[in-house]
């Protein structure tokens, strides 16, 4: 029952994010568009590039979808409304999302096409940039909650949301999350102007539909993770718990989607340099800062 409710919420959330993304890209709000596009994609031919690594080509989108879904599985919608409340939920989220990298490498290498391959290896560079930031900011969140369980992370924010408690961590996490979901302006593996589709370039038809769906799930996972880790998850007055989670998740997703439309695509070298030379020292400072605060102020 729980599973059914959550899967329904997940589907709805993905659809809403698809509407938002379409809005952000094309500047027009059309609630039917994603459904139409998905249906149209199903009817299109699925081209299989020649001399390709068929196995990688097929597994890439599926693995991406699996990774996204497993990440969502540890995010609570409301108390009790969670697929699996793992004791190491935050770490599991990380582990599941690490396979986004694997999937994109497979999708990039598989078709034996130049744009796709460059896109795949670029994402590896992008990963090297964002990975440490995600890990270290989540550590600081776990320090406060004294647990890696996502539900306990939410309850730990009853007094004060983490976005106020550790704002540096919040900013770093959002930037890293946008890199993970390859959202503009950090959409290096698929950048339209650089690679004409990149890792997605050779996917058509139903395979592309799965790839797009997987991407939506990942955006949803990251938006809800941001809401859970930093915005107090289901906590909030008046509305029911699930509504708060949903509202926060959608708000974060909308912010992530619209932000990129007003910024030029980052250069990979710059993203790497900023992440390592500024981001990691800041993340370390964040940990130390949270450590000191946690010892001094018992909230």
């Amino acid at each position: 029952m729980t599973l059914a409710i959550i899967l329904f919420a997940l589907a709805l959330g993905c659809y809403l994010i698809a509407v938002l993304e379409d809005w952000a890209v094309h500047g027009r709000l059309d609630p039917l568009r994603p459904a139409v596009s998905a249906l149209a994609l199903l009817g299109r031919e699925q081209v299989l590039p020649r001399k390709s690594d068929r196995l990688f080509f097929e597994v890439g989108p599926v693995l991406l979808l699996v990774a996204g879904l497993l990440a969502v599985a540890v995010i609570p919608l409301a108390p009790g409304l969670i697929v699996t409340d793992l004791a190491t939920g935050a770490l599991f989220l990380n582990a599941a999302l690490a396979y986004v990298l694997v999937a994109l490498i497979m999708a990039g290498w598989g078709p034996n096409g130049a744009y796709a391959m460059i896109g795949g290896w670029r994402f590896l560079g992008q990963f090297v940039a964002y990975a440490m930031l995600i890990v270290m900011t989540i550590t600081a969140v776990a320090m406060r909650a004294e647990s890696l369980s996502t539900t306990e992370i939410v309850t730990s924010q009853a007094a004060l949301w983490n976005v106020f408690y550790q704002p540096i961590g919040f900013v770093l996490f959002v930037i890293a999350a946008m890199g993970l979901a390859w959202l503009p302006p950090i959409d290096l593996p698929t950048g339209g102007g650089d690679l004409a589709g990149g890792v997605e370039a050779e996917y058509t038809g139903a395979r592309l539909a799965v790839l797009r769906l997987a991407r939506l799930v990942i955006v949803l996972a990251l938006a809800s993770a941001t809401a859970t880790f930093y915005l107090g998850g289901w906590l909030g007055p008046w509305l029911p718990a699930w509504a708060w989670t949903a509202a926060k998740t959608l708000a974060v997703a909308a912010a992530m989607l619209f932000l990129g439309r007003h910024l030029p695509r980052l250069r990979e070298a710059r993203y790497l340099a900023v992440s390592w030379k500024l981001g990691i020292p800041l993340a370390l400072a964040n940990i130390i800062l949270v450590g000191v605060i946690a010892l001094v102020v018992p909230i």
Binding site: L91, F92, A95, A98, F127
Partner: peptide, 14 residues
């Protein structure tokens, strides 16, 4: 287990 799954995904990809 979770650590192994995560670490190896990243390190082997690199």
């Amino acid at each position: 287990g979770v650590l192994q799954i995560m670490m190896m995904a990243t390190e082997m990809s690199v």
